[in-house]
């Protein structure tokens, strides 16, 4: 059941799907590495935990936006589940990006000089 959330959480949640799709569009990656990679790629803008990441990956996979691929890279270690974007995933990314960019530009104009504060 959905919990009550504040506006900041809502904002982050809304952007999370886009961030995840954009990150995985660059290269396929697995759970643990996505947490570190996303944080690095967004210069600390997206700090996520497993509790947010795995359910999101699961939902995107169920929707057909992500394609999992099991790879055993190191002998004696567990196989890693790499996620990459499907064609539908790329379409979804395009759709979200088209909605996101004008929004950010508009908000930046709205904030104006406040951006430097």
């Amino acid at each position: 059941m959905a919990r009550k959330t504040d506006a900041v959480t809502e904002l982050r949640r809304g952007a999370f799907e886009l961030a995840l799709l954009a990150y995985l569009n660059k290269e396929a990656d697995f759970g643990g590495a996505i947490i570190d990679g996303l944080e690095e790629a967004t210069a600390g803008g997206f700090t996520i935990t497993e509790g947010a990441l795995y359910p999101a990956l699961g939902r995107l996979e169920k929707k057909g936006y992500l394609q999992p691929d099991m790879r055993k890279e190191i002998e004696g270690r567990k196989a890693r589940k790499y996620y990459s974007l499907t064609t539908d995933g790329k379409e979804r990314l395009k759709e979200l990006k088209n909605a996101w960019l004008p929004l950010v530009e508009g908000m930046n104009i709205l904030f104006g000089d406040d951006n430097n504060e």
């Binding site: 697995f30 759970g31 643990g32 570190d36 497993e50 795995y54 270690r77 567990k78 890693r80 589940k81």
Partner: peptide, 11 residues
């Protein structure tokens, strides 16, 4: 659980 196990090995 295997996915989490692989993550534990990585991180």
């Amino acid at each position: 659980c295997n996915e989490l196990g692989a993550q534990f090995e990585h991180r």
